[in-house]
C-alpha cells in the first residue's frame, strides 16, 4: 500500500497500529454500522500522517471496502496520505498538521459534559507532536474542566523526523509533565493489547493520558527504531520482506 503509492510514514503507521486496533476494536463504543450514531464515542487521530495504518485498521474492521486500501494515494481514490473525515467513514476529524486534535477533543469533551452526554473522547497523539504548544494549552484547559470523559493516548516511540525526541527538544520527564498539568497518567507497553485495553478503558475522573511505549516501525526488523523509515518509501523487495515479517508475527500470535 505505502510502497506502491510511493508514500512515506510507514514507521509511524506500524508504531500506532496496535493502539488503533484496541481503540476501534475493543474499547471505544464505535462500529462500522453506527458511524453517525449520536451516542458513539469519538476517536480523533492527531498524528494524521499515520493514515496508512489507521486506514488498514478501519478497512479490516469493515468501515469501508478493503479494496480501497489497494488504491491508497491513487489519483481520484478515496484514501490519501493523511487522515481525513471527508468521505472516509470512521474518521471524525481531518488532520495532517500536528497539534490540532487535542484542542478539538477538549471541545468535544466540554460540549458533551454540558449536554450531560456520556460519550467518551479518545485522542491519539504522537510524541514528537507534543512539542507543539497547542497540546499544552489544551491540556491545561482539560484539567481545569475536569474532563473525565477525555483520554489521550500517546504513541511514545521516541523518534520524530530527524532524530530522537530527547536529542531535539526533550519531552522527559514526560509523565511528570502530564501529572503537573493535572492529568491522570498511565504508562503501558503500546504493543500489548490487553494492557492497552485496561489502560484506555479504565474509568477516571480527570482527563487521562496513556503513555504507550512503542517501537517505530514495529514488527519489521530493518524499520524498527530507524529514523529514515519515517521518510523513506519501501521498494517492492523491502515491502514484500516487511509483509512476510508481519505475517509471520501474526501467525506466531504475538499481535
Amino acid at each position: 500500500m505505502v510502497s506502491s503509492a510511493g508514500a512515506s510514514h510507514i514507521g509511524s503507521a506500524l508504531s500506532v497500529i496496535d493502539i488503533a486496533s484496541v481503540l476501534y476494536g475493543r474499547v471505544a463504543n464505535v462500529a462500522p454500522d453506527r458511524v453517525n450514531d449520536p451516542d458513539r464515542d469519538i476517536i480523533l487521530i492527531s498524528k494524521g500522517h499515520s493514515a496508512s495504518g489507521i486506514y488498514a485498521v478501519l478497512g479490516n474492521a469493515g468501515y469501508f471496502p478493503l479494496e480501497w486500501l489497494d488504491r491508497y494515494c491513487v489519483d481520484g481514490a478515496p484514501l490519501g496520505g493523511h487522515v481525513t473525515a471527508h468521505g472516509i467513514p470512521g474518521v471524525e476529524f481531518s488532520t495532517g498538521a500536528l497539534g490540532h486534535a487535542l484542542p478539538f477533543g477538549v471541545g468535544i469533551a466540554i460540549a458533551s459534559k454540558r449536554d450531560a452526554h456520556p460519550r467518551r473522547v479518545f485522542v491519539v497523539l504522537s510524541d514528537g507532536e507534543c512539542q507543539e504548544g497547542s497540546n499544552w494549552e489544551a491540556a491545561m484547559l482539560a484539567s481545569q474542566h475536569v474532563l473525565g470523559n477525555l483520554t489521550a493516548i500517546i504513541d511514545r516511540n521516541r523518534l520524530q523526523i530527524l532524530a530522537n525526541t530527547e536529542e531535539i527538544s526533550s519531552l522527559e520527564p514526560f509523565a511528570d509533565k502530564w501529572l503537573a498539568f493535572g492529568w491522570d497518567v498511565v504508562e503501558v507497553d503500546g504493543h500489548d493489547h490487553d494492557a492497552l485495553e485496561t489502560a484506555i478503558a479504565g474509568a477516571h475522573d480527570r482527563p487521562r493520558v496513556v503513555i504507550a511505549n512503542t517501537t517505530k516501525g514495529k514488527g519489521v526488523d530493518f524499520m524498527e527504531n530507524s529514523v529514515p523509515w519515517h521518510t523513506n518509501t519501501p521498494n517492492a523487495e523491502q515491502a514484500s520482506d516487511a509483509i512476510a515479517q508481519l505475517e509471520a508475527l501474526r501467525e506466531g500470535g504475538s499481535r
Binding site: H82, T84, G96, A97
Partner: peptide, 15 residues
C-alpha cells in the same frame, strides 16, 4: 517553505 502549491498532492489539503 518547501512544497509550494500542490506539490504535496496526495498528502491532502493540510499539506
Amino acid at each position: 517553505s518547501v512544497g509550494a502549491g500542490l506539490a504535496y498532492g496526495t498528502l491532502g489539503y493540510t499539506h
